[in-house]
Design a protein around this nucleic acid. Structure first.
Lengths: 348, 348
DNA sequence: ATTATTTTTGTTATCGGTAACATTTTTCTT
DNA sequence: AAGAAAAATGTTACCGATAACAAAAATAAT
């Protein structure tokens, strides 16, 4: 295993001082062309490039951003991470991942690791199902003393930080309005913990929207479902089997596209035809939405754009100390086939 | 923005030398209990923890592994990354991502960055559609001089490194055998570049398997498809529209599950009923396979396990300099509904 | 009580770069 | 050609932690 060549090796071999080597590396114009050439030659010969640790130590920064999220294997967070990564890359920064698992708060270990590493900033991408907002705020507050902090979160976090959120009002309103236009009146919502106080803003917004449109908000239409396909299957089964057929909803809005996947599977298993017997709207507009049968209408929250903005703002915040920034990204309804519009469906 | 407390601050405030602080932090037993307590108190008061850069500089290592892959948003690589991340984490290491895009070779920039960072090891997860094996090998060879290297790749790379690969023989054999057992004789393969020399080992293995079983390997059954859903749609349309109905294959094996998704959509659009009119087998056993309609039979290559082993071996290789390790992970066929077995289908 | 041991603590060079400042060399004026 | 100004290069302290070694303090042995 080779030992890495250092600036001293280069300086010695080129017969100059380390300062000159640094100048050449940094493309400092105050170097005679002859020296520059000689030094560059030695540099090339050894494929020398300065040690990151040494640079970081001396400079006091790491040119690295941290992103803290529950799990990268979750498609939503995967998209956020990916977008953040490229944006960081574009600005000469690297991005280091920290996963919290379901445990949404940022553990003290992560906090101290972030400080230890002299991160240039943290992007916290929490999820809508977060609970321990107290712990989270404490952690973010502490981090804020050392580096710029940005959050892509539901709108609970009232911290002095770069705060980016989805437009959950529209995220709830769009599907309900769409279904209402199509003549649906009995609309169910599956996912999240509907009746828990501080979770599932999306569900709450959904309920408000129902009331605003004078639609029935029968509690039987709001089932606590999880966030994945299996939960979707179970939830829809639980909901429908507790209801007389004539009281069944005619449309189901799900917490996300995965739940929708489960719901669709279960409905087909029960012998229903989609979208004839039930309209479905998911959320997140995942890549597979166009390939379900029927193709799934979904709400796009544009996580990529949010991540991009977050990273951009974090990098700006490094320079200027004024770092308050807030943004709400509008949601978009992507209409496909799962409500039957393409067939001209309209409930009476 | 707080300045980070250093070991000097702690030493001064506790009235000891920095060496003692280090001892306390490192839980060195050669410290009087009274001093230990006093120092610990100051440490806690300031939430002090040693700077990573300084530690890395002094120690000459980074406790960081690098993973180089095409794109993290690709589900296959996402799974590899995720598994590698947790395995690294479990061993007190962090994992830094490098994305190469379609450009499969490791750019010189990435190579030098890896050396600059004194990575403890690199895991290269290439894809089956890699081309520039020459460049790649050069890069890996160079890296090998500085750190342990592991690859999760098709079996081209003949380098002195930790070499982990999928069992592409079985990956091709399993679906063909399965279909053969079900009575299929005209089996098509969609995906990869079938007739290119150095790509798509999977397709090549597939062809060999067909011949071994005395099944027709009509060139019309092997269409160059891409690696995503759109390509799948187009490819199957191209293949079938060029063929008399009675020469249509009765089963299609695809390069991966995404292609399968596209194929299924296109077939339905053409009015076929699945799995009655066409059997389909995908590859990768992605999460959505159980939720397509019909549920997609697929081959699992167990990327997670490969990633885990790779990381484990990389970490071992840090210590012992003997670092040759090879492993081939068997593939597994996950039977679902897309070949109709659950309905007792059997071609005659 | 004195010396020998052991335990605890401090001193200092080092890791690899950077940049302020000092010094030397070159070029330009007059 | 002498002195001033500009350009090129070198010296050195510092970033924050670590560990080998030295030194001091505490304990044990005689």
């Amino acid at each position: 295993m080779n030992k890495k060549t250092t600036i001293y090796d280069i300086a010695r071999e080129a017969g100059v001082s380390t300062a000159t080597v640094t100048r050449v590396v940094r493309k400092d114009p105050h170097v005679k062309e002859a020296t520059r050439l000689k030094v560059q030659q030695v540099i090339d010969a050894h494929a020398y490039s300065p040690s990151i640790s040494a640079q970081n130590l001396e400079g006091g920064r790491s040119r690295t951003l941290a992103i803290v999220l529950p799990v990268i294997s979750n498609l939503y967070f995967n998209r956020i991470f990916d977008a953040a990564w490229w944006e960081a890359e574009k600005n000469g920064c690297s991005l280091r991942l920290f996963q919290t698992m379901e445990n949404q708060a940022i553990s003290p270990e992560i906090v101290s690791e972030l400080i230890r590493c002299r991160m240039d900033g943290v992007l916290f991408a929490g999820s809508i199902w977060s609970e321990d907002r107290g712990d989270l705020n404490t952690a973010l507050e502490k981090l804020g003393k050392y580096m710029p902090v940005a959050t892509i979160c539901p709108p609970d976090v009232s911290l002095d930080c770069i705060c980016i959120q989805s437009d959950l009002v529209n995220c709830s309103r769009l599907p309900v309005r769409h279904l209402h236009t199509l003549g649906h009146r009995r609309i169910a919502f599956l996912g999240g913990s509907m009746h828990s106080k501080d979770t599932s803003r999306r569900g709450v917004g959904f309920l408000e929207q129902l009331r605003m449109m004078d639609l029935p908000d029968d509690p039987a239409y709001h089932v606590d479902a999880g966030y994945d396909m299996e939960s979707g299957e179970r939830a829809v089964l639980r909901m429908l089997s507790g209801l007389d057929r004539n009281r069944w909803p005619t449309a189901i809005v799900t917490f996300n596209d995965l739940v929708a996947l489960g719901v669709m599977k279960q409905l087909k298993k029960m012998g229903l035809t989609l979208p004839e017997d039930m309209a479905i709207i998911g959320c997140d507009n995942q890549f597979f939405c166009a390939y379900t049968d029927p193709a799934l209408t979904s709400v796009d929250l544009h996580p990529e754009e949010m991540a991009q903005s977050a990273v951009r703002e974090l990098l700006l915040a490094r320079e200027s100390s004024s770092r308050s920034f807030a943004m709400v990204r509008e949601a978009t309804l992507i209409v496909r086939e799962s409500c039957g519009v393409h067939l001209g469906f309209r409930k009476l």
